[in-house]
Computed example of a mutant assay.
Amino acid sequence: MTLMDFPARSFGVSTGPGVHIHGFELGPADGAPVVILHGLAGSAREFVQTALALPEFRTVLIDLRGHGRSTTRPGDLSREAFVADVVRVIESVVRAPVTLIGQSLGGHTAMLVAAARPDLVSRLVLLESGARGGSGDEHEHLGKYFRSWPLPFASRTTAQEFLGDGPLARAWVADLEERADGLWPRFEADVMVAAIKGVAAPRWDEWESIAVPTLVIYGENGIFAAEDKSEFCERGRRVQRVDLAGASHDSHLDAFHSWVAALRPFMGV
């Protein structure tokens, strides 16, 4: 599957010195706007199927800085930089308040955008996200895993054999970039570690300030402990919670139909 298989409209936005944010849109140009933010080491293409399941909406998919087709090695990987990128895209591309959806790192970013710029967010959807995410040891372990990839991969088959056949692995393989010497991921391990470290600090003040209707979705087999899920939802202001049976941290990939079934009613369709 390539982006050329869908009627996508690409765009690019400069958000600072040397930083280019790539994205694309699906759906009617006059539809109610939705912006979706992927997780760490992901890309916008992970949510193409979600966009296609929301045909009534103008869905804007963003490659976050350091990911996908956006700038690979931005100088600033702070939470504030990620937030500023999303604000810039909404203001310059969408130009209207949006339903903002984010998964994992993208969910944390979406939460901070909604807190910083409530005028730009009419509804919020957080998939497998919380006020903070992971410890330093967990982040370093993640970096060690990414650095273990035998790059470049000679072929997609070789990549699949190494990465496995799970939904997330298939998404990584599908998004590999073809270069003269082989296939490379559209992210770099050290950039991912630096990006995720910013999520370690709790952001309860921002979360508790958000007043828009919010849907919080967890996978039954996701990364959050039961007590962390409960605390997060209880400390929110207008929160609806949905748990997806049998789903993982990447519920949009491995529990797609359940994910969409939870999403569409919240969005009024």
Rank of each mutant, 00 (worst) to 15 (best):
R170L: 13
W172L: 13
D175E: 15
P185C: 05
E177M: 03
P185R: 09
Q160A: 14
W184C: 05
A169L: 03
W172N: 07
R170F: 06
A169V: 02
L163C: 08
L183E: 08
W184Q: 01
T158Y: 01
L163I: 14
L168H: 03
W184I: 09
R170P: 01
A174Q: 13
T157M: 01
T157K: 09
E178V: 06
R156M: 14
E178F: 00
G166Y: 04
E177Y: 01
L176M: 05
F162H: 10
E178P: 02
T158M: 07
L168M: 15
D181H: 10
T158E: 15
E178Q: 15
P167D: 08
Q160I: 03
D175C: 11
R170V: 03
L176V: 06
E177C: 03
G182T: 05
T157F: 01
E161L: 10
P185T: 08
G166Q: 13
D175I: 02
L176T: 03
A159R: 03
T157V: 10
V173N: 12
D165P: 01
G166H: 07
D165Q: 12
F162M: 02
A169H: 01
P185L: 09
A174F: 08
L183C: 11
A169I: 04
A180P: 05
R156E: 13
T158W: 00
A180R: 14
R156N: 11
A169K: 04
G164S: 06
F162P: 01
D165R: 14
G182E: 05
L176A: 09
E177H: 04
D181T: 12
L168S: 00
D181S: 04
V173D: 11
F162Q: 06
D165H: 13
P185Q: 09
A171H: 02
G164L: 11
W184N: 06
D165S: 14
V173M: 10
G166W: 07
A169W: 02
R156Y: 13
G166N: 15
E178M: 05
R179K: 15
A169Y: 02
R179G: 01
W172K: 09
A171S: 12
A171N: 04
T158A: 15
A180K: 14
L163M: 15
R179E: 07
Q160D: 04
Q160L: 12
Q160G: 14
A169T: 00
T158S: 11
L183Y: 11
A180W: 05
A171R: 00
R179T: 08
A180S: 14
E177N: 04
R179Q: 14
P185D: 08
